[in-house]
Write a protein that binds this DNA or RNA. Structure first.
Lengths: 290, 290
DNA sequence: CGTGATGTTGATTATAATCAAGGTCTGTGG
DNA sequence: CCACAGACCTTGATTATAATCAACATCACG
């Protein structure tokens, strides 16, 4: 009940709350508490570090606007981007006790974040179980995204990786109302995409061009659109299950209808893919080796 | 206080408890509760699935003995191993609410696991905060390991990946008393190593041989040893920070001294590496682009 | 024994990195 | 208003890395 009231005007809701509200049914009490909790804010300019490798996590961040990335640099000097944080995402959840960061987090463009002290998180777990479940859920989701990236890096071709990555960003942005069925605004350079996908800039560029020539992607400056979602999903081996899009499709929301429809469509395609994958997995062998 | 008593005879302690005891100081109450919680057990034969992709997680697992892996299969038929679960590890932590698994978990050899229902986990979070913190910690660690694999897959050469992986397993096994400074028993085939590292069997084999020829690894059947830890760590770009080995080095334990010494030594080397990495990161540029 | 799983090796091919050079666009200061 | 610098994108040529293909060796086990 409180949900529909709140969601009647999505615009008044902070992106982090919107994300939580999608996976969990919050009471007005919890909503108030959570929104009030975001008073303590900070903004970061392009390239500025929110956390540096080796530092101690002082608190958790909830992104209210802008994009951020986490990355590590190998001794050979190669940079690996580990995750991309979009509006509504949390950074450093479950840092109840001080821990040193094993990666750096930096703003890709101007970022506004709410700072959430560890005490608050403990509070939540004791007093607001549903809200706590939502946060746990967010942590699990980010772990799932990490797993999916592992699959991309280890078992997909350059083309699949790139397409998969763009589809993932598109879906995640739609879920927080920052993209429509028309496409999305890409805020990473091709070099950064390469650093996320373990590919060189040059290779990213060439495959991107090839995808455009084939009509699978459309790129106009930094605007990305996907003319034929169905083939794109197939070509990318994209299975949206790891993003939990389906939960939203069922929940009430005043999200523009075309966006919701598209997400639903993607979920259906995902189902098909999953089935086909199960079949081929069976065909592989009875045991699990190879 | 209770900790030293318990740890006076490590052998009587379940591997999962041992792992938790390393990161958190448990009371006798919590220890009793946790050990009693593991009555409900199951064993799985080689290749048997603990969880299948698409299934709903019914409960969380705590590995008491044996090795397990989680993996996904792409539509192209490539298998990507996401994580390796060793004795003392948890699978599916933070599954308070039912979720469908996005990967399959299968036993590599005979596995004995304790089944922990979601209710128990909620119990723990309400009644045993320290134990809960230990479990949270374990979840964060497994996420960190996943991140490290991302770095390997995206930014390290085949040789580095392989060496890094072997060093990781060795350290993790030492932490639960399943390996010594002499080396460890490898329970994965080269094909499985390839599936974990995004490499073909053939390539794994060749690089492994090359590492042996160079005297960096010694392989006798399935026994692996590392003659010169220092160079191995350097060659692998190995930074043990993601495994939290240091915590143990400080804690009381009757682990064989040579093993503890070795872990301490590895942590020191890790520190050196981290410093050098920070320097080169600074040298890179003031801003973060490239 | 023979069969299947695993490890080993060389030859060939494919994929992506690296190198090199130029192009476009944007913001800045003269 | 123009010249310039810096960031980003684009393209072709060359090289390196790892995949694939194809045998064969070894071992454990029924």
């Amino acid at each position: 009940m409180p949900q529909t009231i709140e969601f009647a005007h999505d615009g008044d809701v902070s992106p982090p709350l919107r994300r939580l509200g999608q996976s969990v049914l919050l009471s007005t009490d919890e909503i108030d508490f959570f929104e009030n909790m975001q008073q303590n804010r900070a903004t970061y300019g392009k390239g500025e570090a929110l956390i540096s490798e080796g530092d101690e996590f002082q608190c958790c961040f909830a992104i209210r606007s802008g994009w951020a990335i986490s990355y590590r640099v190998t001794m050979a000097g190669r940079r690996q981007i580990l995750s991309v944080y979009l509006p509504g995402d949390f950074i450093g959840l479950h840092i109840n006790f001080h821990r040193t960061a094993i990666y750096t987090v930096a703003a890709l463009n101007k970022v506004e974040a709410a700072l959430i002290e560890p005490m608050r998180l403990i509070d939540i777990h004791q007093r607001y179980p549903v809200l706590a479940a939502g946060l746990d859920w967010a942590a699990v989701r980010s772990s799932n995204i990490l797993s999916e990236h592992n699959v991309s890096l280890g078992a997909r071709t350059a083309e699949e990786r790139i397409l998969h990555f763009y589809l993932e960003l598109w879906c995640r942005l739609m879920l927080v109302g920052e993209a429509s069925s028309d496409g999305f605004h890409m805020r990473m350079t091709q070099e950064q995409v390469g650093n996320a996908l373990g590919l060189s800039v040059v290779h990213v560029n060439k495959k991107l061009k090839a995808l455009c020539r084939e009509g699978i992607l459309e790129i106009d400056g930094r605007m990305i659109s996907v003319p034929d979602v169905r083939t794109a999903i197939r070509r990318a081996d994209f299975d949206a299950a790891f993003l939990d899009t389906f939960r939203i499709a069922n929940g009430a929301s005043n999200r523009k209808n075309d966006t919701r429809d598209l997400l639903e469509q993607i979920d259906e395609l995902t189902e098909e893919m999953a089935e086909r994958r199960r079949e081929s997995a069976d065909a592989h062998t009875s045991s699990f080796s190879r």
